[in-house]
Design a protein around this nucleic acid. Sequence first.
RNA 1: GCGCCUGUAGCUCAGCCGGAUAGAGCAGCGGACUUCUAAUCCGCAGGUCGUAGGUUCGAAUCCUACCGGGCGCGCCA
Length: 474
Amino acid sequence: MSLEARLAGALREAAREAYGVELDGVHVERPNEAAHGDFASNVALANAKVFRRNPREVAQGLAEALKAPFVEDVEVAGPGFINFRVSSEAFGEELGGLLSTGEGYGRREPSGAPILLEYVSANPTGPMTAAHGRHAAYGDSLARIMAASGRKVSREYYFNDGGNQIRLLGESVAARYAELFGRERPVSDASALYKGEYIRDIAEALKERDGDRYLDADPAEALPAITSFATDWCMAGIRETLARARSGFDRYFNEKSLYESGEVSEVIEELKGRGHAYESEGALWLESTRFGDDKDRVLVKRDGSYTYMAPDLAYHRDKWNRGFGTAVDVLGADHAGYPPRIRAGIVALGLPEDFLDVELVRLVKLLRGGEQVKVSKRAGNFVTFDELMDEVGEDAARYFYVRSSHRTEMNFDLAVAVQQSDENPVYYVQYAHARIASIFRRAETDPGSIRNVPEGEFAPRSERSSSSSSTSRA
RNA sequence: GCGCCUGUAGCUCAGCCGGAUAGAGCAGCGGACUUCUAAUCCGCAGGUCGUAGGUUCGAAUCCUACCGGGCGCGCCA
């Protein structure tokens, strides 16, 4: 157990002993000022109301009742902070524990209900973009952190290879494919087609594999085959990109499987049965206003097809049925309208409201030397995640993505990310690693072989400043 | 118009379930050291925490209004 946790426990015990008060969140931190000790706590201040006494008095009482042999000195300071000085033996023990545990240090054993983390979930209509990159970096980091702090996590990528966007992808590829043979394929709305360079790549790959067999074929047969080839091509590319970014998934969940298993129609029936779905204007609506949404949402369109809500609700119910305690959805900020309605649907299905946790990731603004990089998806002019990694490297890409909170818009300056200078934090980290490795190489020592800390080599920082002249610590 | 997010040092960002002089890195200024990769180390300066009110013993943090930026308000996903 960490020193912070041990101190928090001791404070909780002292509160029970001295005041008969049961505290839940006890905050112990490392103060900014070394003069304030090795650790400090604001319990007395934060819980003054619970104790019904003035903070200084409470702090004094807690300090007196504290039973913690590893604490050398306790003092009450300022408006009611409790400052601790910890013995160097305790620090030595902690360091010894750190060295022997190695990379496992600080990790917790898994416990509690597993979490389903869904992220990226981009439909296979093209390569991953720089915006998706932020999702991959954030989601992967979140998964690692949750796992390290003792939660079982499953990562899923939910995709749909059958919707309207996919149809457009198929049309786009078919048009390009025809062009490769010098033909023109009639399309209903040329402006809606995807224009990216990759469309040509897909068409060429298709020509490579199947030759001209779709050229004069019945479109009713050719188009599905072309579309299927295109989505497979995109999905394979996405998987490659994700692997390169070291962001793996336990499962790629195809929306289609929810129709095949009957779960979509089940969900509709269940909502009807619960009285939360009604028909109006020829469509079937979810009564989501009853559960906090702005307006009711269509589940089944007038033409009989489903909106995305239907399979999405089926997917979330499927997550619940698989035994997950929490579903975390990482979505783009352009889906801001989504959480209230899907939550409404979840509650309407009788699942707990807090089952779903949605994290919205803001957009990435790409800069190059302070100048904004213009992107236009419509014109097929965008920066792919692969191009970004080509330019700055995988590590720098991930570092910058995760550097600032996912909730704020971020500026990603490609020019800075490749600089080998003080301005580039990635370079700093890499350089620090190189230097440390160099030291160990010269010392002819393997850092992994260090098992115990010689007495007096390390000291808590409250002792460091005062006794710096006595011992040199390299 | 309504809703959600956001505005902290010249720049990029922490801090935001209220608490000790508001932090870091970079950039700036001053100094040290000629080396285990100087792409180093130490120090200094720099902030009306968007603005105005309110709650509180105490507000960057909570509440209200306003200003600026982003996103959303489809029988698209």
